[in-house]
């Protein structure tokens, strides 16, 4: 176990290094940031000076080395637009994103588990088929479009919930959050529903498939023969084992939610890191894009590491080489 953990840790560092190379290469191709810094009528001399300040007059290797040593020390440079450290911008907006991602995840699990278990335990029933058809629709629709439909119906026509923005926030554990007040929570509902639908649909299909497999196992037959009640069989013997593979998709789920948060936040004008990324892409704000990329990469790598270690701990059948 210890050896495995060390091996995964080394892998993690390698992946992050590879991402840093990719980010650097990509950023070197995306135009010249000098022109973000100098006025339009700048003289050649001013341009040359700006390039010197940005370090663009040196070789790519030297530039990469400086880039790498800066990010290792947590220095991602300043945003061209906000004139603030890019990392600060991300950290300021992170709670807003985590809030909708977390709520969307909870909603997806609360709906997907019971429906998935039902459809997996009774695969032939019409209701199960309806659940599966529904999940296929959920996979097929563009999430951002669903958000627009919700805005139009719930916010514009019925005027039940606000259509955009974050509403009032309060300080909680050192973060600004909005779920603590009713008005803030009302702002959360539509973005979270929009974000959760895709994940919900995929989750439901995975749980159903797992349940179908598990219900075929001998221990389920044995539990039936023993005379265990349907509820005990379904939840204690069935669901418990069907949920183990779910741990492995947790990382993927989180990744998808963070990715689709860029679209959801754009539609609902939700001030999270996804909207910051999209705005920064429009404005060519390179330091912010870089810090977003590295930050998200770090988050995925750490989550996948924790997931792998947990998986090995939960399921003793998995032999670690």
């Amino acid at each position: 176990m210890f050896g495995y953990t060390i091996k995964r840790l080394i892998q993690m560092v390698v992946v992050l290094w590879a991402v840093s190379v990719l980010v650097f290469v990509m950023m070197s191709f995306t135009g010249d940031p000098t022109f973000m810094m100098v006025p339009l009528d700048a003289t050649d001399e001013q341009i040359a000076q700006a390039r010197r300040i940005l370090g663009l007059d040196e070789s790519h290797l030297v530039q990469y080395w400086r880039f790498l040593s800066n990010i290792v020390q947590g220095d991602f440079g300043r945003s061209f637009v906000f004139r603030q450290p890019a990392m600060t911008l991300i950290l300021e907006r992170l709670p807003a994103t985590l809030e909708i991602v977390f709520l969307a995840m909870v909603m997806a699990l609360l709906v997907a588990i019971p429906l998935g278990v039902y459809a997996g335990a009774n695969p032939k029933k019409p209701a199960s088929r309806a659940v599966m058809a529904g999940s296929l629709v959920g996979i097929s629709l563009p999430g951002f479009w669903l958000g627009m439909v919700l805005i139009f119906v719930v916010a514009v026509k019925l005027q039940w919930l606000p259509s955009s923005g974050r509403g009032p926030t309060t300080e909680w554990l050192g973060m600004r959050v909005s779920f603590t007040s009713w008005e803030g929570f009302r702002h959360l509902i539509l973005p979270a529903i929009t974000l959760s639908v895709g994940t919900l649909a995929i989750l439901m299909r995975i749980i159903r498939a797992e349940m179908v497999e598990v219900m075929k196992q001998d221990y389920i037959k044995f539990a039936r023969a023993k005379g265990a009640t349907a509820k005990v069989i379904l939840f204690k013997h069935g669901l418990k084992n069907a949920l183990i593979p779910l741990v492995t998709v947790f990382g993927l789920m989180l990744g998808d939610l963070i990715a689709f948060a860029t679209l959801t936040e754009t539609i609902f004008a939700w001030p999270g890191i996804g909207k910051l990324l999209v705005d920064s892409i429009y404005r060519g704000d390179r330091p912010v894009i870089v810090v977003y990329l590295m930050f998200v990469a770090l988050m995925f790598v750490v989550v996948n590491f924790i997931v792998d270690v947990c998986y090995a701990l939960i399921d003793p059948r998995i032999k670690i080489k």
């Binding site: 991402v19 990509m26 689709f260 679209l263 894009i289 995925f300 790598v301």
Partner: peptide, 22 residues
């Protein structure tokens, strides 16, 4: 396969978004 692994740890939408921004 290592390149594939690294790429799979990122959601496709996000990767595509970065490529397009570049």
């Amino acid at each position: 396969m290592r390149i594939a692994d690294i790429q799979l740890s990122f959601p496709s939408v996000l990767t595509a978004l970065f490529l397009m921004s570049a």
